[in-house]
Design a protein around this nucleic acid. Structure first.
Lengths: 215, 215
DNA sequence: CTCTAGCTGTGAAATTTGTCACAGCGTGAA
DNA sequence: TTCACGCTGTGACAAATTTCACAGCTAGAG
């Protein structure tokens, strides 16, 4: 079994390699990639073991080939098909980001329960009423659902999407979803992350002050 | 030393307890809190060890007292003071979420380099030009910076904020920031999270199909 | 009061995750 | 062609994190 952390790092390598390729880098060593990703060289080599790509001593990894291997490993050469549920301010922000920018994320449809928001397009993405969720996703081959509804709605939304055959979610609502073990949820709780950052900020800040006092 | 994961869970417990209290729950057992947080009861008890609050066999944890202890541990009874840099679509979404909604996050000021966006208020938060970043944060006691600028700008923005004495960041830009060891960065890379969810979605989906085929 | 059921707090074990260190290999130099 | 340098791939080790399992305690029953 392959761990979440490894996957996170691999996606990171992927985006770093994309960057490097645009800068014309053809080969890269584990320690260079490690510097970019802020991890250790050993970690990079370990991670790359799992995708089965082999580098070359003396020349390192071939950027293009490695990217190819990563693409194949993730198997999303045509982009990742997603739907977004909840066209509030965060939902709109994501639509504007992913519909305009180029990344391999494709938002195929958006949903909202508010009739004021449905029936039109936002950032080029069609917004459907929640009532048509089931039938609409049946027509699409969607890999991942983006949940940007209020916390109180989140559970019923994922339940519906799971029934529609979706096995992966990114949940922006500040609640823990209840899902069967065949479904993956990545929680992106902004409030929680800020609290975490604030906690360590304070502890680092105090430590710094102490050290200065000792001088 | 206390781990990031523990802190994340503790902030989660905090928000769950808030919820429970509004529902009139006065006491809670480790297994109940564990169910809500989707962790094991042992994990809950371990985590609560670090904040020094003791429950009571037979009655469990007193919700109010535990909340009090958590507040004290995090020491943010007056809210977490933050600034936001980058008033793009994501920045605006965060402003609208945190300026209106009730949470203990306080965005004291926003900054942007685009003169079209500065000098006015968005969702009740004043937007200053980037040039005034240094002087403005000197007047405020800010714990945490929210980075919602494009990736290409992110590094110089955090450098400036670090000079201004900020030790904690939540970074929404898809780059890894270079910071001294006295500074904490929490990366919230939406693209990376979607890719991760998509990867596991596919692997779970395949596994499910296999199992159905075996029947 | 005494007893008991069922919880908490916590050493110790298990598991997961990351690092070390080195054998082996391929490239470029001579 | 041969040699040596320096990188990769990986077994073995170390650290971090989670789970187990049980002693000890306390509220409530009798």
């Amino acid at each position: 079994m392959i761990s979440e952390k490894t996957i996170s790092r691999l996606t990171n390598y992927q985006s770093l390699l994309r960057q490097q390729q645009t800068q014309g880098t053809s080969h890269i060593f584990s320690h260079q990639l490690a510097d970019l990703a802020r991890v250790t060289p050993a970690q990079v080599r370990r991670d790359l073991m799992v995708i089965g790509y082999s580098g070359n001593p003396r020349t390192g990894y071939h950027v293009g080939d490695l990217q190819e291997s990563l693409m194949q490993f993730f198997a999303f050469s045509t982009g990742i098909p997603t739907v977004l549920v909840g066209v509030g301010s965060l939902g709109r922000a994501l639509l504007s980001y992913f519909m305009t920018g180029r990344s391999n994320i494709r938002i195929l449809a958006a949903f909202d329960s508010d009739p004021m928001k449905t029936g039109r397009s936002i950032s080029g993405c069609r917004v459907y009423p929640m009532t048509r969720l089931r039938e609409t996703i049946a027509d699409l081959t969607v890999t991942c659902g983006l949940i940007t509804v209020p916390g109180s709605e989140a559970q019923k939304v994922v339940d519906a999407l799971i029934t529609g055959g979706i096995h992966g979610f990114v949940n922006f609502a500040p609640v823990r979803l209840k899902v069967p073990p065949t479904v993956f949820v990545e929680n992106l709780d902004v409030t929680s992350s800020i609290e975490k950052a604030a906690f360590f900020a304070r502890s680092y800040s105090l430590k710094t002050q102490e050290e200065q006092a000792h001088e």
